[in-house]
């Protein structure tokens, strides 16, 4: 009768993908700080503006602002980049305003860095032969939270900043800025929560089989 315990494959201490993700997380964290800093160094504030569909057709041609103050570029869709180099009274755009327009970018990049870091830790534990360590389920829950908070937070901040920026350059009614929230992050968060549940079940099953002879 063969009842020998299977010899487990020697666990790898680090998974190559986890190292890549860790490097990516570090890069994103640096970018999250560097991009707003670069923007502050420039002389203009940039906001991504989602125009309401009804306003799109008229906004780009009808906004009455002094030439050179505002450049709106975009395609036929409702999203345009609003670049403000100086206010209508000739004053340059303030540092705080320039920083504020980058808050959404900062949130997104920070969120991505956190997600990459957590995924790297998940893969490292899997690579080390400990797929169902206690923190694994918590990491996926945190990833879901990061996706939702950073996505919704970035969209909200972008909307508020775009609204504030359009208000500061003239008639806010001329450009109707609308909030935009994507459903994709919600789907990703749901997938992450499902994975958290799967890892939680795996942890329970592992606990049941520990000490099985």
């Amino acid at each position: 009768m063969e009842n020998a315990d299977p010899t487990p494959e020697a666990p790898r201490l680090t998974s190559p993908l986890s190292v890549v993700l860790m490097v990516l997380a570090a890069g994103l964290a640096v970018l999250a700080v560097a991009l707003p800093a670069i923007q502050v160094g420039r002389g203009e504030a940039v906001a991504t503006v989602d125009l309401s569909p009804s306003a799109t057709a008229t906004a780009l041609g009808s906004v009455e602002l002094a030439t050179g103050h505002v450049t709106a570029t975009g395609n036929d869709r409702v999203t345009v980049n609003l670049v403000v180099s100086e206010l209508p009274d000739g004053q340059p755009v303030g540092t705080l305003a320039k920083l504020a327009t980058q808050a959404g970018t900062f949130l997104w990049l920070t969120g991505l860095a956190v997600i990459c870091f957590l995924l790297a830790r998940v893969l490292a534990d899997i690579g080390a032969g400990r797929p169902f360590e206690a923190p694994q389920a918590r990491r996926f829950t945190l990833i879901a939270l990061a996706v939702v908070v950073c996505s919704a937070g970035a969209d909200t901040v972008n909307y508020l900043q775009a609204r504030a920026l359009t208000a500061s350059i003239g008639d806010p009614a001329a450009i109707a800025v609308t909030p935009y929230y994507s459903a994709i992050p919600l789907v990703l968060a749901a997938v992450s929560l499902v994975l958290a549940g799967a890892f939680r079940s795996g942890r329970r099953i592992q606990a049941d089989t520990e000490g099985l002879i």
Partner: peptide
Amino acid sequence: ILKNNRARAIRFST
């Protein structure tokens, strides 16, 4: 583990 009463379960095959 079995001898020292630290086993939590035993297979029928064992």
